[in-house]
Amino acid sequence: MSERLRVKALEKRFGDIVALEGVDLVVPAGQMVGFLGPNGAGKSTTMRSILGLLSVDAGSILWDGDPIGSDARRHIGYMPQERGLYQRMKVHEHVAYFGRLAGLDADIAASRADAWVERVGLSERRDALIQELSVGNQQRVQLAVSLVHEPSLLVLDEPFAGLDPVAVATMSEVMTEQVASGVAVVFSSHQLDLVQDLTNHVTIIAAGNTRATGTVAELRNSSPHRILAVQWQGDAPDWVPPGGAALPGRAGAFTVPADSDASMLIAMAAAAGTVASVSYEPPGLDDIFLELVG
């Protein structure tokens, strides 16, 4: 699959504050990439740099292998973290306006706005003012705005923040449809379960640099730890596997070195008490995330 976007060793300082110091990110065409990191990690700064909203001090941003320019940026759809909408414009008018700004003829912008307003479920609120909509519906408008010019790359900063389950479902469906039609999608989110449901590809950054990138399975398998989870019948014995440690908040779950002998650990657990069930697997995305950014 061709690389639509590649961000290489991006660096950005705001005065004395280092925002980015070596961010790498690859978004292939027709693929969705979860861009993860704690607050202040540099996700939004990276996304703004991709859009050209910020200049960077070092590094490069490539579009189909070439340095990105204003022509390529016209093919990006962007949804910022702070939902940017004109409160006194009408829903359809708003979407069409951004379509025209993105270069569509007025007629095409109007018909696309019609289609997207319907797709995000706002047909009945077509002529409502933005300020009359709920937060969730405003987010739907924002999604329509980012898609009206049929971009090749979607950059979505926290698209699920503040959405109810129905809106999350709509947003997820649209994102999946876009990927299926060949659009590259990169989105940030703190809802890691949602990220895992949507994509296998993630990039994790912290403190302005990329800590890990790959499929969720690759990241899990590359962890130096494994999770041993044991359930005993009756009271749990006072047992901890050799080289391991109890996972806080999860009874009977232990983190152990990845090179541990799983069958031996299970046998030792069985010797400590009557085992009802046992699992031995790489840590989940949540744990990987904490390992990398903690």
């Binding site: 910022p80 939902r83 940017g84 951004f98 705005v145």
Partner: peptide, 15 residues
């Protein structure tokens, strides 16, 4: 208003 609402980011991604 454009700055406070964040709409300026969307605008500047186009113009």
């Amino acid at each position: 208003e454009e700055k406070a609402s964040g709409v300026v980011e969307v605008l500047l991604s186009h113009i």
